[in-house]
Amino acid sequence: MNKYLLLPALLVFNLYALSPTSVGVLTKIIQTVEYKAVETENWGNAKLGSVVYDGDEVRTGSRSLALLKFLDNSLIRVRENSIVTIYGSKEDNKLNKNTFIERGRVGFEITDQGDDEFKFTTPTGVASIRGTKGFFEVPLDGSMLIFVKEGIVDIESLIGTKASGSVGAGKFAKIDLSGELVIEDAGSEYENQFQAMEKETVKKIRIKLNNGEEFLLEYLD
C-alpha cells in the first residue's frame, strides 16, 4: 500500500529534477529588453515577471534597462546595449550562480552568499563575489572593468598571465586583452557612474516651446 502512495511523490520529484534550474525573475523592464531561453535560437521580447532559467540570455537595446532579481534576493541591473547569460547550478543545498557578461554594463548588489557562489565572467576575466555592490563594464573589445562600491571581489584574468587579485571598496580593476590586471583607487567619476546605475525609477518632464510644441523627456532617477 505504501509503495502506491510513494509513486506520485516520486513522479513529481523526477519531473522537478528534470526541469531547468530557475535562477531569478525579471522584475523591471524599461524600453527594449529581449530574452532567449537556453533551448531556443530566437530572441523574443522579455516580459515582466519572466522566470530566468539556467543558460537563458537577456539583452538590452539602446537606452534600456532590465532588472533581474535572483532567488537569494541578489540583484543585477543590465544597462543599455548589454548581453548577459545567466547560469545557475544546484549542488547539494547550494545554488551557484554565474553571470556571463558578453558586453555592456551591469550593476550588481549581491547578498551574503554563505556557502553559495556568485560569479561574474567576461571574455577576459572572472570575479567571485560574496556580498557586495558595484558594476562591471565590458566594452566591445572584450576587456573588463569592475568598480567595487562595497565589500571585496576576487578577480582573475582568464587569458595571458592569468593574474589575480582582490578589489576592495572604492577601487576599480581592469583586465585588458592581454590579460594584464590593474587595480587602482577609483575616483569620483566611478562613484558617480555607480550612483547613476542605481537609478531605476522612470520620470517624465514636459518641455513646452513658445510656438506651442511640446516634448516629453523620460529619464531614470
Binding site: I30, Q31, R63, S64, R79, E80, A196, K199, V202, E213, E214, F215, L216, L217, E218, Y219, L220, D221
Partner: peptide, 8 residues
Amino acid sequence: DNILNIEQ
C-alpha cells in the same frame, strides 16, 4: 545615459 527618451 539615464535619459531614456525625448520625443514630441
